[in-house]
Design a protein around this nucleic acid. Structure first.
Lengths: 189, 189
DNA sequence: AAATAAGTGTGATCCAAATCACACTTTATT
DNA sequence: AATAAAGTGTGATTTGGATCACACTTATTT
């Protein structure tokens, strides 16, 4: 739970009492490779804060093609957020790519923490602000960039992921075919 | 300012005293058609809450092509949010398509209101949550849908905009060429 | 260590949408 | 009301990237 405290305190300092109040709202879970945290169609009870490991948040279209909405690593939050916030069934999957640990928490917890502790409402607001900006940047990239530019941007943002996960997943994240992505780095250097 | 109060109270009720405290952080501005609220390169002092009119938030790539990040109508917030939050220069434009009025407010105001009034921090958190979900839906659409599906989705979400703004802007929002979009509705019905 | 599965590179082909071009229409401007 | 500007539909052409196909490589599994 020390990681949780450090994580929150990157945004707002906490007293010991405050942290004692926050702690019980989170539980720890070990996750093995290939394990699903969320499965399409299921109820989405939790959001997750990644302590370690790598995870992909993705969905599958009618033709069975996969699209990756988000990769998550240490200190990232993840869920099928539409389903989580709107309390509907999942339209996405979360699968573990490298085993690790996560903290999980319910929507009721998030709301209770936000109500009881102004600091936590602040924390979530700041997190959402940053999330919003990241998504907007991604939209701009999807609207106006070539596969080449998308790949370069990805390499800049997540140099470590480039090494650690299969390239085909990167293609699914960038909205480019596996083959096109492969030709990018074989041609260009 | 009544509109502001009603807008906030959709999310959290306010006492008269609270609203008196909030009011001074917002100013009114009338905006004429074709007027710019934000211009690329400029400092971004304000975010805007639309009271009336229609606005487009867009950017221009190296080749001079335009891409629309957001349309804004009554009760929508808009800014070049990366520049606004990170206090950097604008990489986008906001232009008025139909004249109207907006309220504007600074980053300092947003932060002060959030600090002083837990309710306002809550308000902004809820707004950001919804914004986040909307952007994520848009990413999914850009990743996996055909021009046809994008157009249908747009028609469902903004049936009124379809009538009121030039179709070429819709194309710029959907990430599809003007011509392709035009062929969609001339062929399909 | 052998067998199976998952991931990757690369050529050949195809196709949806971009681009180019231009006439027509609607909307601003003077 | 006349002129200019902006927006739109539609054909012809081009093209970037998807798809298909398959060999090779690297991981898992037993």
């Amino acid at each position: 739970m020390n990681k949780l405290r450090a994580h929150i305190e990157k945004i707002t300092p906490l007293t010991d009492e405050e942290f004692e109040q926050i702690k019980p709202f989170f539980s720890l879970k070990k996750v093995r490779k290939n394990q699903y945290l969320i499965h399409e169609g299921d109820e989405v009870k939790y959001e997750y804060l990644v302590l370690s490991g790598i995870y992909k948040v993705f969905y599958v279209d009618q033709q069975g093609k996969e699209y990756i909405v988000q990769f998550a690593q240490e200190n990232w939050w993840m869920s099928d957020y539409r389903a989580f916030f709107k309390q509907t069934n999942a339209s996405m999957f979360i699968e573990c790519l490298e085993e690790g640990e996560v903290l999980y928490s319910t929507l009721q917890s998030r709301e209770k923490l936000s109500t009881d502790l102004h600091k936590m409402e602040h924390f979530f607001r700041v997190k959402l602000t940053n999330g919003y900006l990241a998504l907007q940047d991604r939209i701009k990239l999807l609207l106006s960039s070539t596969p080449q530019q998308r790949y370069e941007e990805f390499s800049k943002l997540y140099p470590d992921l480039l090494q650690r996960i299969p390239k085909k997943y990167i293609a699914e994240f960038l909205g480019v075919s596996r083959e096109t992505l492969s030709r990018l780095y074989s041609n260009s250097k």
